[in-house]
């Protein structure tokens, strides 16, 4: 039980590694972006894990209930920001991928490099 308290962090580490692997090892540009999204989501999980308090509830203050524990609002605010940053990066990346496809006819990294070297 004591160890299960760290389970979220382990999942964070594993998902983080999976995402990073996809970003580095995959040659397909869209796959790289998917990896990047996974990689960023892992960080969200880490932050949100911090905010949890045992016996707490979402930080919406209910009047008339004394001694209620609330989870920490700050990491939630940070991650709201980070989620929107994530989707912005993804959209920008995809726009570039679409243009790469139009300019090179492929979205595989090795083929793009080849076509520039032969050109």
């Amino acid at each position: 039980m004591e160890l299960l308290g760290y389970f979220n962090y382990w999942v964070f580490a594993i998902v983080f590694a999976i995402g990073l692997y996809a970003v580095i090892a995959k040659l397909n540009l869209i796959k790289k972006l998917l990896g990047l999204a996974i990689f960023q989501s892992a960080v969200f999980l880490m932050y949100i894990t911090m905010d949890k308090v045992e016996g707490g509830t979402a930080p919406i203050i209910q009047k008339g209930i004394e001694g209620q524990l609330y989870s920490n609002p700050l990491p939630q605010v940070l991650i709201l920001t980070a989620i929107v940053v994530g989707v912005s990066m993804t959209a920008m990346g995809l726009a570039i991928v679409v243009r790469i496809k139009e300019a090179y006819g492929t979205i595989e990294e090795d083929e793009i490099l080849d076509s520039d070297h032969t050109a």
Binding site: V23, I100, A103, L113
Partner: peptide, 17 residues
């Protein structure tokens, strides 16, 4: 230049990491 596009993509990936 069209080579700007892969360059930006790499920049984006590395920058985001």
């Amino acid at each position: 230049d069209r080579r700007a596009l892969p360059a930006v993509f790499k920049y984006l990936i590395m920058g985001t990491i």
